[in-house]
Design a protein around this nucleic acid. Structure first.
Lengths: 307, 307
DNA sequence: TATATTTAATTCATTTGTGAATGGATTGGC
DNA sequence: GCCAATCCATTCACAAATGAATTAAATATA
């Protein structure tokens, strides 16, 4: 035949480079080196007889973009990627001496809540191992970056199944030490005179952030893109912040300064699984336990006083 | 995560080994060595954490069979295989300095007929290259073993499109030299007294073979599994044979000894393409030319005298 | 304008993977 | 029961692919 078929693994690299936009980023994701990415892309382009990705712009701002031929190829490769992801999801089923590891992903705050209750969770589950995972971006369950995700938005895309957890409300919190130094934190004057810490994600603002901005009539002085950082700033006595009640209640050094905020729509948490994982015994068991955990502690999520 | 993802290329090997039933056979098909097949299967099994293929029986009769885990994995891999085959079919589209090679597959006899008319076929088609391919087994168009196939059975499985070509009839042929030596070949006595050469495929018998057996009241003395071999035996003056008229008529040293055989249902030839190839300009052009070729020569396929 | 950062290309020593050859095992044909 | 054929595992010399390190280019920031 006319030349050999392209190496399947090179097709995989191509899809990742196309998605990441650079050889280096793709290399990081696949735990390979940048020269290897370049060479294997070249090899694939030679096999296909056409340039597939082209570098536009230079330096850090440049990126690899699909050529017309590359754009033609990508959807075909993506069918392989989907099939590969299905295998990746099924893989834990194959290991005979299965470790039984279940990986749970959620935001930086919620994962703390879970981490502190691991003994409760692992109780009477011998041989089970848990991995807690939280990252800046939402874990991709299709790619099996996690088995179970806890999210505060109902996901729409993908073959995901979900289960609703109790709603949770927000309140204003401050470090005891900060409140002692700033008595106005205890009164309505706090909105005008205290320093505020807010969540400022680059990807869309949250309701709690909007509420805070409206309430204080300005943008909070301290803005963090990582919710974990808000908590750290708060604990350090930097100012006040709006937190989910069940997060603030965790920290003995924090004071809840208001009742649960009524104006702010309570948010529902979701426990999300990939369809393919639903019937995996261990995953199902852990998911059940997590759901039970949140229901058992629903008084923390939605304390008295919230309308 | 729990170990690295399996190498996509190893998944491909797994599918081929499972299909072929042996490392050696798979190695031949993929143009790799047998040790490499063994090692990469091992590597995949290690990644998946389970034995996937197991050797049952020893020596040439043994074969690799799927374990339960392997049987579970195979359908997942086959989704990748299909995606990969689609890429393979699309590949000629990508080559910029496209050679424009079109590959035609058919049986050993028909391919001769086409080969002799290549000048007719290539006429006014500059830059086009043709590959003629005939093998013992039917070319797999999904796997792009060929772009165009000519078959005498209507294919059923796969995403194939087909076009009917003229029907063709059979007659009895013998080498002039043989007929000179054996005058009975010219009369009805031939069925009893001549030596006969027949087609004996291991995979199912053909109508013409059945007809011949009935007519001569025995199985032909010479049986070939390869139709090309029949022709060679016939040309060498070994005996008589039943051939498609248009094949026998090609050979000046052969004599057609009977009218086209009426009792034998005329067979239709089919020109078969994969759906994905239908709209590829060069393939379409060549397919049109081949169809035209057969229609132009339909008097050879179905000569006067056939009812 | 200078500096720090990010990126891709290149080079080179090392590791890894490959295939030819060999030997052992088993089957089928004679 | 022997011989030929086929298959797999193993060995080993060689080839190929990899990654660390370096260089060069381009951008954003100070």
């Amino acid at each position: 035949m006319n030349g050999l078929a392209p190496d399947w693994d090179d097709l995989r690299l191509f899809a990742v480079i196309a998605a990441e936009g650079s050889l280096s980023a793709a290399a990081r994701r696949l735990k390979l080196s940048q020269p290897t990415m370049g060479r294997r892309l070249q090899a694939l382009e030679k096999q296909m007889g056409a340039k597939l990705l082209e570098r536009v712009g230079g330096g850090p701002a440049g990126s690899y973009v699909l050529t017309p031929k590359g754009a033609e190829l990508l959807p075909l490769v993506e069918r392989m990627v989907e099939a590969g992801e299905a295998i990746e999801r099924a893989r834990p089923d194959f290991a005979e001496g299965a470790t039984g590891t279940v990986r749970i992903a959620s935001g930086h705050l919620t994962i703390r809540f879970i981490a502190r209750r691991l003994p409760e969770l692992l109780d009477t589950m011998p041989g089970l191992e848990i991995e807690l995972y939280s990252s800046y971006s939402v874990a991709n369950l299709s790619r099996r970056e996690a088995d179970i995700a806890i999210r505060n938005r109902r996901p729409e895309e993908g073959r995901l199944v979900m289960r609703s957890l109790p709603q949770y409300s927000y309140a204003v919190f401050g470090a005891r030490e900060y409140v002692a130094r700033h008595p106005e934190a205890a009164s309505e004057a706090r909105y005008e005179h205290c320093r505020w810490i807010g969540f400022d994600d680059t990807r869309g603002r949250s309701d709690s952030f909007e509420w805070l901005c409206a309430k204080i009539g300005r943008v909070p002085e301290i803005r963090c893109s990582n919710a974990g950082t808000i908590l750290n700033a708060l604990l350090a006595g930097t100012g006040l912040a709006v937190l989910p009640c069940f997060i603030g209640a965790e920290e003995p050094s924090l004071l809840q300064l208001t009742a649960p905020i009524d104006d702010l729509d309570r948010e529902t948490m979701w426990l999300v699984l990939h369809e393919d994982m639903r019937n995996r015994p261990r995953v199902r068991l852990v998911a059940d336990r997590i759901a039970a955990l949140f229901h058992r502690h629903r008084h923390l999520l939605q304390p008295e006083g919230a309308g």
